[in-house]
Computed example of a mutant assay.
Amino acid sequence: MHFAPPVSKDRIISKFPKCYNPQACIQMKDDWNMKAKVACQDRAARLQGYDRLKMSKAVVVGDLNVGKTCLINRFCKDVFERDYKATIGVDFEIERFEMSGLPYSLQIWDTAGQEKFKCIASAYYRGAQVIITVFDMADIKTLEHTQQWLSEALKENEPNSCFVFLVGTKRDLLSAEECQRTERDAIQIAAEMNAEFWSVSSKTGENISEFFFRVAALAFEDAILNDLETGNSTAQIGDGNILNDKALENSAGKANEELLLLINLAFK
């Protein structure tokens, strides 16, 4: 049996992450669900192999040039690149965590904001546990478009099956007063979308880790509770979609092959 390397210390989540702004929070809670906590403790005590990973899927959508790729790269690679390169079709990163003592992975899909790639990207919305709609806080028009992006992503998923987040990027470009005004508008839109709002800066890193920790924790807890609800034994809790490193490589390779085919068709 092959074992995955230990999770890095900055990806270990023991306490339930809070939302940075109570006004923008959908789930007001300070701790893990008690049923989920007990199940995690039981599962961790069994010392299951770290090559058995529970994985959730998050898709990131929004207009062209709102900072979707920068958002993902700041968290996954801790880099910020000024030179913008538009995403072609879709791309994804896989981040590994340790949640309440259990191994867990978040698959983060970066989708293109260009109109000509919408038909390609929409195919990758399916099966999402999390939908992250992104707008540029320095361009209020992109906020107006977020509801349409969310609607298109929800079409590909079961009703009420996804956590929804509204993320404003580039807050570093705004003054304190401008930021407050934009946040007030965004919180109102987020309420209409039944989404949790976050304001971040990929350039400075402000709120980036906190945001993705919140995303991962909510998705992980939901997966545990779904396992309990469907009657899986405690020995299986945390397994869900069981994938080892080789399976992840095969999955990525297959996704890239499908993407190239779709791109070729789009340009014919």
Rank of each mutant, 00 (worst) to 15 (best):
M99F: 07
A121Q: 11
K57S: 09
V38L: 00
Y20H: 13
A58D: 12
L265Y: 12
E229A: 06
L243M: 01
V90K: 13
W32I: 05
V38D: 00
V7D: 01
I237E: 01
G253K: 15
W198C: 01
L259R: 15
S251E: 03
I189M: 14
S202Y: 10
G253T: 08
G113E: 13
L265K: 10
R74E: 11
A112F: 02
G205M: 05
A4F: 04
M34Y: 09
R126E: 13
C179H: 02
N226E: 15
N250A: 13
N21S: 13
V164D: 08
K15V: 05
T133C: 04
A58I: 07
S199A: 15
Q180N: 12
E98M: 08
N244T: 07
F163C: 02
K118T: 05
K9Y: 09
K77Y: 10
Q23F: 02
D239N: 12
E156I: 04
W149L: 07
P6Q: 08
F135R: 14
T111K: 04
Q188W: 02
W109C: 03
P22E: 11
F211S: 04
E257N: 01
K116P: 01
N244S: 08
R181L: 01
K15I: 05
C76Q: 01
G127C: 08
L166S: 11
C25Y: 10
M55W: 04
A191T: 07
S175N: 12
E210D: 04
C40A: 15
G113R: 11
S201G: 11
A219C: 08
D30W: 08
N194C: 07
V59I: 15
K155W: 08
R126Y: 08
H145D: 05
G231F: 06
T142R: 13
I108K: 13
K246D: 11
P22S: 03
Q188R: 03
G127M: 10
S199V: 03
T87Y: 13
F135T: 08
D63G: 02
K155C: 08
G238V: 05
A190P: 07
K141P: 03
I224P: 11
A39N: 08
A235P: 01
C179P: 00
I187K: 09
L53F: 00
N250D: 14
F212W: 13
D185K: 00
L243P: 00
D42G: 04
L154T: 02
N244Q: 05
I26S: 09
D91Q: 13
I189V: 12
K155Y: 12
K170M: 04
D139A: 11
E81G: 03
L150E: 12
L218P: 00
Q48Y: 01
A36Q: 09
G205V: 05
T87V: 02
A217V: 00
Q148I: 06
K9R: 15
D78I: 04
N264A: 14
A44E: 15
S161E: 12
F197R: 12
L261Y: 10
L225V: 05
M99Y: 13
A112P: 04
K37H: 08
Q148C: 06
I132T: 03
Y20I: 06
R74Q: 15
F135I: 03
E196I: 05
Y125P: 07
E210L: 03
N73L: 11
E81P: 00
L225S: 11
C70L: 06
E115H: 01
Y104R: 12
D10W: 10
I131L: 11
P5E: 04
I13C: 07
R43K: 11
